[in-house]
């Protein structure tokens, strides 16, 4: 590179400069071992390192750490939200199932209640009807007994009338008391 810049065309001054350059650096061979530039390199290196350190520690590293944290946080939050929603879905399903079971139980309860009510009404109606029937039966029996009693009396009357008529026709003496006793004796028997 240095030789390119010091081309022959540039004249004597440049040639002299090139010679001086070669004398300064060429003698050691390695610019790395030219200790006269060490102070310069070390100074600028220290400046550079301090500047890079300040840029990194004040701005770059905190910012990148914040970005990475934020991303981690976002991912964690999203996962948590997804978990939350899933839990909510499960909860909703459970609530739905519970509501369904409740409704079913309620329906059964109402059905049973209605059935019991109807049963009770039917029982009451049957009891009432039974009572009415019993009352009517008793009434009828009374009426029958009355009729029977009347019929017996009539039979006695007819029998004693018939007996007295027979006795008279046969020429006997109409003994009312005797006939009555005889009729009573026969009808009782």
């Amino acid at each position: 590179m240095a030789s390119n810049t010091h081309d022959a065309g540039h004249g004597a001054a440049d040639a002299a400069h090139g010679a001086a350059d070669a004398a300064a650096h060429g003698s050691s061979g390695m610019p790395q071992l030219d200790f006269s530039t060490y102070g310069n390199q070390i100074w600028w290196l220290l400046v550079t390192l301090v500047v890079i350190y300040l840029i990194l520690s004040r701005v770059a590293l905190p910012r990148i750490a914040a970005i990475l944290n934020e991303r981690q946080g976002t991912i964690t939050n999203d996962l948590a939200a997804a978990e939350d929603l899933k839990a909510k879905a499960v909860e909703a399903e459970n609530a739905y199932n519970k509501a369904l079971a409740d409704a079913r139980a309620e329906a059964q309860r109402i059905a049973a209640e209605t059935r019991a009510e109807i049963q009770a009404e039917v029982d009451e109606a049957i009891a009432k009807a039974d009572a009415e029937i019993a009352a009517k039966t008793a009434e009828s029996e009374t009426a029958i007994a009355e009729i029977r009693a009347t019929a017996l009396d009539n039979v006695k009357l007819v029998a004693s009338d018939t007996a007295s008529a027979l006795v008279e026709a046969l020429g006997g003496k109409d003994d009312t008391k005797l006939i009555a006793a005889a009729v009573a004796e026969r009808t009782e028997g």
Binding site: M1, A2, S3, A20, D21, A24, H25, M30, P31, Q32, D34, S36, T37, G39, N40, Q41, I42, W43, W44, L45
Partner: peptide, 22 residues
């Protein structure tokens, strides 16, 4: 030659504060 430390704004002397290609 590529490793030579040179003053940026001319001059042969490289002091510790001279701005160089370094």
């Amino acid at each position: 030659d590529q490793f030579t430390v040179k003053a940026l704004f001319g001059g042969d002397h490289v002091a510790w504060y001279t701005p160089t290609n370094v």
